[in-house]
Design a protein around this nucleic acid. Structure first.
Lengths: 204, 204
DNA sequence: CATCATAATTGACCGTAGTCATATTTGGGC
DNA sequence: GCCCAAATATGACTACGGTCAATTATGATG
């Protein structure tokens, strides 16, 4: 089933969802998330109010939809980054730090995107969370295989630790006005604190 | 200015706030946070709707108020715990793990308390956050002084890392149904991962 | 082309958080 | 005891997120 095999009905559906999504994005970015009402969005997208909720069960589901699209990009990037090459500490850190660049574009907007993300971030059962988790675990396992990380600690658990440091650094950067530090720099520093504590022991 | 020197007016104000607070708590615990309306709370506290908002600007400010009271207890406990004695790794972990017992009592309720806390948790300028941060920094500095922790890493930064691991573990435990792990056990394990990576190096 | 089941759309409607202009209470000064 | 300004209380009102029963569009079948 390729993307082409959509019936007209399905195409129209996609198109309507996209129209609502785009209208919402534009309004969120220009007027802010709270200041934008569902009525504004549906007026701009030229559909009835109820139609919005056919596609996005809650107002902030629109933002979750954005994160989901973004997740797919990240999955591809990480897979490409570590394709065939031996991973190492610095490339791994650089890759993850780079991902955070997304948030630097528009802090006010990002604050809401991130918040909608955090609303689900800790639900182990959410499939989207599982995919993010998997991305991190993949990289950690690579570093364990290469011998850089000690292997006696569960990769899942390490990922949860890393992810929480990562996320909370972004959250702090977004929530404090003015920005309290350079985001990518601080991210690198904090990640290094955790990572370097997990090195394969040369002593012992 | 002792607590006794309150005018009648101030006493009544305190009392009204307390009455609203208690009514809200009872209702939240019996019917849940969302299911409890401001009208329910004010009816139970026998005040008008507007009065609620004189004391708590938002519905979930009630929960923040709870966290603030709890913070004071924790400050005292930690101060007492490390009074006069040399701190060590295990007592520190035990103390922090013990604090999380609070959340085990009523998960549904805790979920909301914790969420209201997270809403402010990453704002460096919030005085309450600063006090939580200070509690953590105090303990970390003690461990640095005692030589257990390496001292070449900023205690503030370590605290942010520790706090994020702590908080996200609680968040995950609260958000996943049924509880995905034993909270205090997992907290201890994750904290140890970070802490043990920060040991003063005996090699090097 | 007519019929029909199903999918998608619609907007009137509802419940509740939060606002605000008005009314009431308070306590200090005379 | 009376007056007044400031503090506090009040509840009608608004705005908005979200629901749902009714309506309309779609395309498959004969």
């Amino acid at each position: 089933m390729t993307a082409i095999e959509l019936t007209r009905r399905e195409r129209k559906k996609e198109e309507t969802k996209e129209r609502i999504f785009n209208a919402a994005m534009k309004l969120f970015k220009t007027h802010g998330f709270e200041a934008t009402t569902i009525d504004d969005i549906t007026a701009k997208a030229d559909v009835a109010k109820g139609t919005f909720f056919n596609y996005f069960p809650k107002k902030d589901t629109v933002l979750q939809y954005l994160s989901e699209q973004w997740l797919e990009e990240v999955e591809d990037k990480i897979a490409a980054e570590f394709q065939g090459t031996t991973p190492n500490r610095d490339r791994m850190i650089a890759a993850f730090v780079e991902i955070a660049r997304f948030y630097e574009e528009d802090r006010e907007f990002s604050r809401h995107v991130f918040r909608s993300w955090m609303d689900r971030a800790y639900d182990e059962d959410d499939p989207i969370c599982q995919r993010w988790h998997a991305v991190g675990v993949f990289v950690i396992r690579e570093l364990q295989k290469s011998g850089y990380f000690r292997s006696d600690i569960d990769a899942d658990r390490i990922e949860y630790v890393m992810q929480s440091v990562y996320a909370s650094t972004i959250a702090m950067w977004l929530d404090t006005d003015p920005a309290p530090f350079d985001l990518r720099e601080e991210l690198g520093t904090r990640i290094r604190i955790v990572i370097d504590g997990l090195k394969g022991r040369r002593d012992a």
